[in-house]
Design a binder for these strands. Structure first.
Lengths: 339, 339
DNA sequence: CTGTTAGCGCTTTCAA
DNA sequence: TTGAAAGCGCTAACAG
């Protein structure tokens, strides 16, 4: 059943029905009421594909995330989907494990004529997103720390987060701080690592390359990395990580090697997953607010959409340092610091 | 740029281009090759909205989940999205916290003309999904344990899962088994509770109503429920739960009351989340295989789609009982069983 | 204030 | 084996 059917039953033209549906002021209240009644009675359901076909606007936003199995992205998705629905938009969600999937995701976004897209996929050589830019799709990236025509960026303020974390650890007497990073070569890994390094500097602590190891943003990566780290001649008394999953892995790895967190080593995560205060020990972490982030992404999308021929803007999302149980005073027991 | 443009450049009609794109055999290999070249060179991107408009098929499946913040659904989503993309379909994902959102989700599915939908939303009074049925959208529900015209059901074999779990606990010397359920009134809660009860029976254990309490499928629900349970005059020596999050909550609740798992109480979950073997203690649980489940849902969707006027079929997904650290021999210390 | 109409891009039927 | 043409449902421009 379509507008014409409704129009016929209401004794008007389909244009009038369309006007009523779109809240045009060019309709008498009397007519509008009658039309609305018929609309209701017939249970009319609009067909947005017709509009998309004609005008190229789909009321759909794309969202690309790198790993939906990481609860951080699931939680972000929940928040983002909620906001998108509030403004009566649709969400085209895609998970992207590898480059091939990124390419196909971009193609799908183009096909479905999305009105904008948020890209959290960790690695785009800018190559993969070019088609989107070319087709003037408003874009928002997260933590790419770069903008360009038609593409804004949302930066998470890890700098501040790590500074609080390092300060906290220093106050607890830790001066040998380790860091377990994310996947080698990813921009987001570098951003967090740099934030860690400059936090050390700001707090007057020295950076030790031998206290740094690379993970993969997942539990197993943190586990493996901390084992590798603990093979080395010197060991840190506290370890900061690239995200909570990595921190969980670090805790598990230490535990399995016979060390206890926080007794022997303090650990700090990043994200504050819903489960981070359920883990034992409850995780001290740099919280990345998903709700807020989703709102800022949408704001950035709107800004970019206003004029796709304009250079994008940088947006920022604050972090919050949350102290729980995984960080305590440095034990000073040498056993944790040297083999 | 559209098919006409491509056709013109290739010196053929748009019909021929369409045929090439759809792999029709009615085109000379020579023509097809030329068309494909032009297609490539021009970077043609098809517009599926046109097809949807004309033929009502969208190559899109809907997915409704009740709580994307529960990693179980995120993990399922990941698996399902992967499969859906493999067959070149799109996914229309919606999270549904309450009834209002269910209604609007259903409407969106209808608007977007999905070719089928999987409903994991816990509570539909069948009322909310009626419009879908009415519009002949092939449906698949999960654990509704009922089928009807155009709607199949995928049942997770909790019966077998709980039987293994109860047998395991009995062998460890537990005979006072408690159960923390899901949200009151939900079909999925009842299904799991019944599975628990009949597992007791099968294993010759008596059911005690005072060992049963209701949660909400989330951590806080498990926490609260076990505290309520522990207020009662008698306490179980082992607790089974409706899902892993609830089990996490139970463990945390017990812990905060000064009891240790598994030393004082054994706990069993359901799901086997990715983080279930990262928690301390690693959780003994009834695994619900997401990958398999996604595949069966798709199979069920295909079956239903074959003929929407036919009664749906029942499908089944096996579970697997996984023993980890949260279950040990009954301590027999009376302190856990009476105040 | 309301109606008429064109046309978005695609696939399929029919004709050649 | 190929082409011509219709028509899906909608909205906006234009006419009345």
């Amino acid at each position: 059943m379509n507008m014409r059917d409704v129009a016929r039953r209401a004794g008007v033209s389909s244009a009038t029905v369309s006007r009523v549906l779109n809240g045009s002021p060019l309709v008498t209240e009397r007519t509008a009421t009658r039309v609305r009644e018929v609309l209701d009675k017939m249970g009319y359901i609009p067909n947005p594909h017709a509009t998309t076909l004609k005008y190229g606007r789909s009321k759909t936003y794309g969202l690309i995330v790198p790993d939906i199995w990481n609860p951080f992205y699931a939680e972000f998705l929940g928040a983002f989907e909620h906001l998108v629905r509030e403004i009566d938009y649709e969400l085209l969600f895609t998970n992207v494990e590898d480059d091939a999937k990124l390419v196909s995701s971009v193609r799908r976004m183009l096909m479905r004529q999305v009105d904008g897209a948020v890209l959290m996929a960790s690695e785009f050589d800018t190559k993969a997103i070019e088609p989107l830019l070319l087709h003037k799709v408003p874009l928002v990236t997260v933590d790419r720390r770069a903008v360009q025509t038609g593409c804004s960026d949302v930066a998470i303020d890890f700098e501040s987060g790590f500074q609080h974390a390092v300060k906290h650890l220093k106050e607890l007497g830790h001066c040998q701080l380790g860091f377990i990073g994310g996947t080698e070569g990813l921009k987001t890994s570098r951003v967090r690592f740099q934030a860690f390094r400059s936090a050390l500097e700001h707090n007057g602590l020295t950076f030790h390359q031998e206290f740094v190891c690379t993970g993969n943003y997942r539990v197993d990566g943190g586990d493996l990395a901390v084992r590798a780290l603990w093979e080395r001649p010197m060991r840190p008394s506290a370890v900061l990580t690239v995200n909570d999953l990595t921190a969980f892995g670090v805790i598990r790895g230490l535990h399995r090697m016979g060390f206890a967190v926080p007794r022997d080593v303090s650990v700090v995560g990043v994200d504050d997953l819903l489960l981070s205060d359920v883990m034992q020990p409850e995780l001290t972490t740099i919280r990345v607010p998903r709700q807020r982030m989703a709102a800022v992404c949408l704001e950035a999308l709107n800004y970019t959409k206003e004029d796709v021929h304009r250079r994008g803007r940088r947006f920022s999302v604050p972090t919050e340092f949350i102290v729980r149980e995984s960080t305590v005073h440095a034990s000073c027991s040498e056993k944790t610091r040297a083999k």
